[in-house]
Design a protein around this nucleic acid. Structure first.
Lengths: 125, 125
DNA sequence: GTTAGTGCAAATGATTTGCAAACAG
DNA sequence: CTGTTTGCAAATCATTTGCACTAAC
């Protein structure tokens, strides 16, 4: 993966954001800073980051896909503010084990699961 | 809500399907049975059923929204086959409590959560 | 009769893709 | 140089909507 001006910009934007942001939001914020970048590039880059495990992605309730740089590579879940995208990383091995156990019991294989908690954070209340 | 030919057809199709189906799939299967119905009607009706709590809906990993008639009104989760849509209703109060507790601890309010487990069912293996 | 429901085609909105030009290593 | 990456515009795809028309109650 080459090191381009655009990629660094997106990377920094994610860093600065802290929480989850959509491709559209990243694009808008870069444009606001007068950083010239194509929307397609933002989509392609975020997708690449996500594939490479550098960022976590999830689909918000309204259907937009949002991305965030997370602190660990370890599997975890999020508590996400619907208003501002602020999020807290949380995990619970209990849930993982239960999911695996339920799946096995019903004969399912190649399991993946999604667990995200949406709410309104203190600052947005 | 009026009782129309189209609504009964969609209702029956869901019944027969058993698992999760998308609006597109329902539309195609009805057309295949020579039942004339507009795609928009299928979307509108499934949405209405979902709003009325008559069916459960969720967004699949590929982005399509799928619907299913469930057995209880009680909150629950699903183990879903990616291949055929077959699903098993499961629940775990433990998870609910943990989600609520985590949210509270971090000052989040107006909580909702999604938890779905995707896999390949025995028949599709 | 009214009013809700339907069909179709056009509109949306997020995301993807084709392709020629620009750029990193 | 030479394979990547970018930008733009056009293409997708699921879903929604405007509107005239039809069918419940």
């Amino acid at each position: 993966m080459k090191n381009t001006r655009q990629r660094s910009a997106i990377s920094e934007a994610l860093e600065k954001a802290g929480g989850f942001r959509s491709a559209q939001q990243i694009h808008a914020s870069l444009r606001a800073e007068d950083i010239k970048i194509g929307l397609a590039t933002v989509y392609r880059t975020l997708q690449a980051f996500s594939d490479g495990g550098e960022v976590d992605s999830l689909r918000r309730e309204d259907g937009e896909t949002v991305y965030r740089r997370c602190s660990t590579d370890k599997h975890h879940h999020h508590l996400i503010c619907r208003e501002c995208g602020y999020s807290v990383e949380i995990d619970n091995d209990e849930v993982e084990r239960w999911a695996a156990r339920s799946a096995r019991k019903h004969g399912f294989t190649a399991i993946t699961h999604d667990l995200e908690i949406f709410g309104t954070c203190k600052a947005c209340t």
